[in-house]
């Protein structure tokens, strides 16, 4: 790299190093009681019942969200891959529409739909399917609905990109050799889409670990995830050490998962080729 090429990269490097990476190191320092090297906040994370409970809730919600999101996205992306151009355009519009509306506004809309006297409950009672309103928000259900809704478009785009690389002739070959639809799907298409699925799973899970807005609004203070707990620790109880320690653990977890999945994909591709 020549000096003039580096001069072009320098501004953004300075910008991010001074205003992003340095602050990040600062919160690592806070969590370790810099200049000491004290792991007491991390030990507290492990010992505290409250943190354990919230970490478990977070894990359960993220796992459920990931499974549902990837399942729904697979169906959509498969349909998009083989749809006629007209249908494809229409479906893409529906998929991309939420991407352009903010997480916050989508939560507002879900609150309107799902609360006790919300539209879903009123519609169900009007039809006579239920007598008393269902509890759809301020619990895990609400949070999962909101998170799945947020993440499906991302997962669809990821899966669709990988499905596009699958050679259609392989499926035609399977069918012309007498394979049933279900065989073609499970023995040809599914294995070929494995790396795409792994990417989508990683993306969804890593994104969902850090969710803040959706759990805070749709969980209504009763279903609390780690991000919201961090915000409460820092802003309300001023426990910076605890809050930053949770952040660092989350960040390390996210980076680790991404690296792990990249390595797995590389190995899988190597094994196939």
């Amino acid at each position: 790299m020549t000096r003039s090429q580096f001069a072009y990269i320098l501004p953004v490097l300075l910008f991010l190093v001074l205003l992003y990476f340095l602050p990040m190191f600062k919160i690592v320092g806070i969590s370790l009681e810099f200049p000491d090297f004290d792991l007491k906040h991390y030990v507290k994370l492990y010992e505290s019942n409250a943190v354990r409970r919230i970490a478990w809730t977070t894990f359960v919600i993220c796992t459920a969200t990931t499974i549902i999101t990837v399942f729904l996205s697979y169906i959509l992306a498969y349909d998009l891959r083989f749809a006629s151009p007209g249908r494809q355009k229409f479906m893409f519009m529906l998929v991309l529409l939420p991407l352009w509306t903010s997480a916050l506004i989508r939560c507002v809309a879900w609150l309107i739909l799902l609360r006790q006297n919300g539209l879903v409950n009123e519609a169900l009672m009007f039809v006579g399917a239920i007598d008393t309103p269902l509890e759809l928000v301020r619990n895990k259900i609400g949070v999962i609905v909101g998170m799945v809704h947020f993440l499906v478009p991302f997962a669809v785009l990821t899966l669709y990109a990988s499905f596009r690389d699958i050679d259609e002739r392989l499926m035609q070959a399977s069918r012309s050799l007498g394979g049933r639809r279900i065989d073609t799907l499970s023995k040809v298409f599914l294995p070929l889409s494995a790396t795409g699925v792994l990417q989508a799973v990683t993306l969804t899970f890593v994104f969902s670990l850090g969710f803040y807005v959706t759990p805070a609004l749709l969980g209504g203070g009763r279903t609390v995830m780690l991000s919201e707990y961090v915000s409460v620790s820092v802003l309300q109880t001023l426990r910076w050490g605890l809050g930053t320690a949770i952040c660092i653990v989350l960040a390390v977890l996210c980076i680790g998962l991404v690296l792990l999945s990249q390595r797995a994909i590389k190995r899988w591709n190597g094994a196939v080729a």
Binding site: Y20, G210, S227, S231, G243, T244, C247, L250, C254, I255
Partner: peptide, 8 residues
């Protein structure tokens, strides 16, 4: 990195 970490 989770946004809450960036925010803090």
């Amino acid at each position: 990195i989770p946004q809450i970490a960036t925010a803090l």
